[in-house]
């Protein structure tokens, strides 16, 4: 039998169905945790935020969302940013601002090869590069590549137009590619 859609499970959860809770939790706790970790760069904070997201979910008393997944990520994202602001961190501290990222973009995207192939220390390099993206670009990349959301869903989660999502993704990818390839070239020169 096909797995039940999220909206059905959520509606059952609202009526006190424990099995629906367990299914939704198994489905979304790991990817949500990954999203929160990558967004905040803080494991402990990510765990706390994950708990907070699910507590809000279970106690929700409003009109059921039409599109559960996008709505869930919206809650997670908003909680993450509120928490970062409460801790006095406007951005993950290593991230570029949008203006800084423009400078980096100009610097890194000249004469780059077509394909990004990384040799070693991949995980660390990728993580660091992601952290350097401005928040607004990083969240789009996270939602697209790690959470598998469509561009339309991402637009709903971050509450901007589809065009803005595409533009942010475009710049993020250029920047990422540029940073990663530049690092790789430096590595090869050594």
């Amino acid at each position: 039998m096909d797995p039940l859609p999220d909206e059905t499970l959520f509606a059952r959860l609202m009526k006190g169905d424990e099995e629906a809770l367990e299914t939704l939790f198994a489905r979304y706790a790991p990817p949500l945790y990954g999203f929160l970790w990558r967004l905040t760069s803080d494991q402990a904070l990510a765990e706390d935020l994950l708990q907070e997201v699910f507590i809000r979910l279970v106690n929700y008393a409003g009109k059921p969302p039409l599109y559960f997944r996008a709505w869930l990520y919206t809650i997670a994202r908003n909680l993450a940013y509120s928490s970062l602001r409460a801790h006095g961190r406007e951005q993950a501290h290593r991230a570029y601002s949008v203006a800084e990222s423009d400078e980096v973009l100009k610097d890194t995207t000249q004469n780059l090869p077509e394909k990004v192939i990384l040799s070693r220390d991949n995980e660390e390099r990728v993580r660091q590069s992601l952290e350097r993206l401005p928040d607004e670009q990083r969240e789009v990349v996270l939602l697209r590549f790690y959470q598998g959301l469509s561009l339309e869903e991402i637009a709903a989660v971050v509450e901007v137009s589809l065009g803005t999502v595409k533009s942010r993704l475009y710049r993020a990818l250029r920047l990422l590619r540029g940073m990663l390839l530049r690092e790789e070239m430096k590595e090869n020169e050594r």
């Binding site: 039940l4 909206e7 059905t8 509606a11 059952r12 609202m14 009526k15 006190g16 169905d17 099995e19 059921p64």
Partner: peptide, 8 residues
């Protein structure tokens, strides 16, 4: 949606 959400 209402039908799918009835209690077990």
């Amino acid at each position: 949606r209402l039908i799918n959400a009835v209690k077990p």
